[in-house]
Design a protein around this nucleic acid. Structure first.
Lengths: 128, 128
DNA sequence: TAATTGGTTAGCCATGAAGCTAACTATACA
DNA sequence: TGTATAGTTAGCTTCATGGCTAACCAATTA
């Protein structure tokens, strides 16, 4: 929970590659061995392993070797941490929109009050 | 709405840099000129402009030049598009957890039924 | 018109990322 | 014991990224 902000760099960098996003998507459906994960990709194994490693150091994936098979699983915390970042931004963004809306409303109200005080002008009075 | 998936690469890559995330955060609070944005950063302007450019080509930021001032604003669509990706993954992930839970429940039920049929064994009966 | 301000273009450098092959380790199977 | 399987390590290339300086427009302002 503490310094997970500092690896937003790594999490987003990891997710910026389509191969790695595909791996994450695959792992959302359940754990898998390196070989199973590599299957669909037309890529040499060492290259593929680099992607796995990037995902691991970002914290998105954890793996464990048993016998000669390495099994990978998703670490949901990291995904959630990244999702949180978006929600924080959206909160700020929406707060601004609210303020802006409030401001527009205030302007509108003032304009209406001004129009009420000076009834004959280009402004047309609207019922209610 | 159509091919926004294809620039998830660029969006995530853009967000993998702390300078650029800070710019996005700043722009969530409202539009700003390049100079205003650059202020807090100890970086030469051309370097900073590269970040702006990365953000623009990713679609996260739009800008417009009026006179000699370029004003930048956030393009919320791209942010939302990226956030959506997380939500999709989470949906898959949670569906799996649900299935897993259902499976565990099923096992538990079967075990209970087996225990009921064969009352004296290592299983301890629990009230209700 | 001259000087300032705000941004832009061009080009350089160092580092890191993404791919490859070749060779190696270690487990499982026959 | 020998062979196939599953990863791993080492080392190489190529290209992108992030930073810099220097020089260059183009609007404002004095």
């Amino acid at each position: 929970m503490a310094n997970q902000l500092s690896n937003l760099d790594q999490i987003f960098a990891a997710l910026s590659d389509p191969t790695r996003r595909a791996i994450v998507m695959r792992l959302c459906a359940g754990e898998a061995s390196v070989g199973e994960l590599a299957g669909p990709f037309d890529m040499a194994l060492p290259s593929f392993m680099k992607h796995i490693h990037v995902l691991e150091t970002s914290g998105l994936v954890q793996s464990e070797k048993s016998g000669r098979v390495r099994t990978c699983r998703l670490s949901a915390d990291a995904l959630v941490g990244a999702e949180d970042w978006f929600q924080q931004q959206r909160a700020v963004w929406e707060a601004r929109l609210d303020r802006f809306e409030a401001y527009v409303m205030k302007l509108k109200k003032e304009k209406e009050r001004a129009a009420a005080k000076r009834p004959s002008r280009t402004t047309k009075r609207k019922g209610s």
